[in-house]
Lab assay of single mutants.
Amino acid sequence: MKATFQVPSITCNHCVDKIEKFVGEIEGVSFIDVSVEKKSVVVEFDAPATQDLIKEALLDAGQEVV
């Protein structure tokens, strides 16, 4: 499964690193693409990962998800 999250609070590479760390810890996540320019995060994943778990990880990383 693939999901795109709009994350307007992404401003720098530190944000990218933190997002990759938090989302990458979720079992089932196979790909993460964070774009500072587009302020988006694209995640490819399989169970047990879910969109809700990914959104929670983004929030835990200090990001706003819309």
Results as ranks from 00 to 15, higher is better:
Ala47Arg: 09
Cys15Ser: 11
Glu37Met: 07
Phe45Cys: 03
Thr50Lys: 00
Thr50Cys: 04
Val36Leu: 12
Gly24Val: 05
Pro48Ile: 02
Ser35Trp: 06
Gln51Thr: 12
Glu20Asp: 05
His14Phe: 12
Ile54Trp: 02
Ile26Gln: 02
Ser9Leu: 06
Thr11Leu: 08
Lys21Pro: 01
Ser30Pro: 01
Glu25Ala: 15
Cys12Ala: 11
Thr11Gln: 09
Ile54Leu: 05
Asp46Asn: 13
Gly62Val: 10
Glu27Gly: 06
Val66Leu: 12
Val66Trp: 08
Glu25Lys: 14
Ile10Ala: 04
Ser40Cys: 13
Val43Lys: 01
Ile32Glu: 00
Gln6Ser: 11
Cys15Asp: 15
Ser40Gln: 14
Ala61His: 04
Ile32Gln: 00
Ala3Ile: 14
Glu56Lys: 15
Pro8Ser: 09
Val41Gly: 01
Asp52Thr: 08
Asp46Thr: 14
Lys18Tyr: 06
Lys2Leu: 10
Phe31Asp: 05
Ile26Arg: 01
Asp17His: 11
Ile19Asp: 02
Lys2Met: 09
Val36Ile: 11
Lys18Ile: 12
Ile32Asp: 03
Pro8Arg: 08
Ala57Asn: 02
Leu58Ala: 01
Val29Phe: 01
Lys55Phe: 13
Cys15Gly: 07
Ser9Cys: 10
Asn13Glu: 11
Phe5His: 02
Phe5Lys: 00
Ala3Thr: 08
Asp33Asn: 11
Lys55Trp: 14
Gly24Arg: 14
Gly62Cys: 15
Ala57Gly: 05
Gly24Trp: 12
Val41Leu: 05
Ile32Cys: 04
Leu59Gly: 06
Lys38Cys: 12
Lys55Asn: 05
Ser40Gly: 04
Val43Glu: 01
Val7Pro: 00
Asp52Phe: 11
Phe45Ile: 01
Ile26Pro: 01
Pro48Ala: 03
Leu59Trp: 09
Pro48Tyr: 01
Ile32Gly: 00
Val66Gln: 10
Ala47Tyr: 12
Thr4Phe: 15
Ile32His: 01
Lys38Pro: 02
Val65Leu: 07
Leu53Thr: 08
Val42Phe: 12
Val29Met: 02
Gly62Gln: 06
Val41Met: 02
Asp46His: 14
Val65Pro: 07
His14Val: 15
Lys2Asn: 07
Phe22Tyr: 10
Val41Ala: 03
Ala3His: 09
Lys2Pro: 03
Phe31Ile: 08
Asp60Met: 14
Lys55Ile: 15
Met1Asp: 07
Val36Ala: 05
Thr11Glu: 08
Ile54Gly: 02
Phe5Pro: 00
Lys2Thr: 11
Gln63Leu: 15
Asp33Arg: 11
Lys21Trp: 08
Glu27Ile: 12
Ile26Glu: 00
Gly28Cys: 04
Ile32Pro: 00
Ile54Asn: 02
Gly28Phe: 02
Gln6Tyr: 15
Glu27His: 09
Glu27Leu: 10
Cys12Leu: 08
Leu53Glu: 08
Val29Trp: 02
Val34Ile: 09
Asp46Phe: 14
Val65Ala: 06
Val7Gly: 03
Val16Ile: 09
Phe31Ala: 13
Ala61Ile: 06
Glu64Asp: 09
Met1Asn: 13
Ile54Gln: 00
Phe5Met: 02
Val42Ser: 09
Lys38Gln: 08
Glu25Pro: 06
Val7Cys: 06
Ala47Gln: 09
Glu25Cys: 07
Lys39Asn: 07
Phe45Lys: 00
Asn13Val: 15
Glu56Ile: 13
Glu37Ile: 11
Gly62Asp: 06
Val41Lys: 00
Ile54Lys: 02
Lys18Cys: 06
Val65Gln: 05
Val16Gly: 04
Ala47Val: 09
Phe5Trp: 06
Val65His: 05
Asp52Arg: 11
Val42Ile: 11
Asp33Trp: 14
Asp17Trp: 13
Cys12Ile: 07
Asp60Phe: 13
Lys39Ile: 05
Gln6Thr: 10
Asp46Ser: 14
Cys15Val: 08
Phe5Ser: 02
Leu58Gly: 01
Glu20Asn: 14
Val43Gln: 03
Val36Pro: 05
Val29His: 03
Lys2Tyr: 09
Val42Tyr: 15
Leu59Arg: 11
Lys55Arg: 14
Gln63Phe: 15
Ala61Pro: 02
Pro8Met: 09
Leu58Gln: 00
Lys18Glu: 09
Val43His: 00
Ala3Gln: 06
Leu59Ser: 07
Phe22Leu: 10
Gln51Trp: 15
Ile19His: 02
Glu44Tyr: 15
Asn13Cys: 14
Ser9Asp: 06
Gly24Lys: 11
Val29Thr: 03
Ser9Ile: 05
Val34His: 00
Met1Glu: 07
Ile26Asn: 01
Val7Asp: 00
Gln63Cys: 15
Gln63Thr: 06
Phe45Tyr: 14
Lys2Val: 12
Glu44Trp: 15
Asp46Glu: 11
Glu20Arg: 15
Pro8Asp: 06
Ser35Phe: 05
Ala61Met: 07
Phe31Val: 07
Val66Met: 09
Thr50Ser: 08
Ile54Val: 04
Asp33Ile: 11
Val16Leu: 06
Ser30Asp: 04
Asp17Glu: 14
Glu44Pro: 01
Asp17Ala: 14
Ile10Gln: 02
Lys38Gly: 12
Asp60Lys: 15
Ile10Phe: 05
Cys15Leu: 07
Val16Lys: 12
Lys21Thr: 07
Ala49Gln: 02
Ser30Trp: 13
Gly28Val: 03
Asp52Cys: 12
Gly24Leu: 09
Asp46Ala: 12
Gln63Arg: 06
Lys2Ser: 12
Phe22Met: 07
Ser40Ala: 08
Pro48Phe: 02
Ile19Thr: 01
Val66Phe: 08
Val29Arg: 00
Glu25Tyr: 10
Cys12Arg: 07
Met1Arg: 10
Val7Glu: 01
Ser35Leu: 06
Ser30Met: 12
Val16Tyr: 05
Ser35Lys: 05
Glu20Phe: 15
Asn13Ser: 12
Gly28Lys: 02
Val36Ser: 04
Ala57Glu: 00
Lys38Phe: 14
Leu59Tyr: 09
Thr50Pro: 01
Ser30Lys: 15
Gly62Pro: 02
Ala3Met: 09
Cys12Tyr: 09
Glu27Thr: 13
Asn13Asp: 10
Glu27Phe: 10
Glu25Leu: 13
Pro8Phe: 08
Ser30Phe: 12
Cys15Tyr: 07
Ala3Pro: 04
Cys15Thr: 08
Ser35Ala: 04
His14Asn: 14
Val23Ile: 11
Lys18Thr: 09
Val65Trp: 08
Thr4Cys: 10
Gly24Ala: 09
Ser30Val: 13
Val34Gly: 03
Gln51Ile: 15
Pro8Lys: 09
Val43Ala: 02
Thr11Asn: 08
Leu58Ile: 13
Phe45Ala: 00
Ala57Trp: 04
Ile32Phe: 03
Ile19Val: 05
Phe45His: 00
Ile54Met: 01
Cys15Arg: 06
Gly24Thr: 06
Asp60Gln: 15
Ala47Asp: 07
Val43Phe: 01
Val16Met: 05
Val43Ile: 06
Thr50Met: 03
Val43Tyr: 01
Ala3Val: 15
Val29Gly: 02
Asp52Tyr: 13
Phe5Arg: 00
Gly24Cys: 08
Asp46Ile: 13
Phe5Ile: 04
Lys39Met: 08
Lys18Ala: 09
Glu56Gly: 11
Asp60Trp: 11
Phe31Asn: 07
Pro8Val: 10
Val66Ser: 09
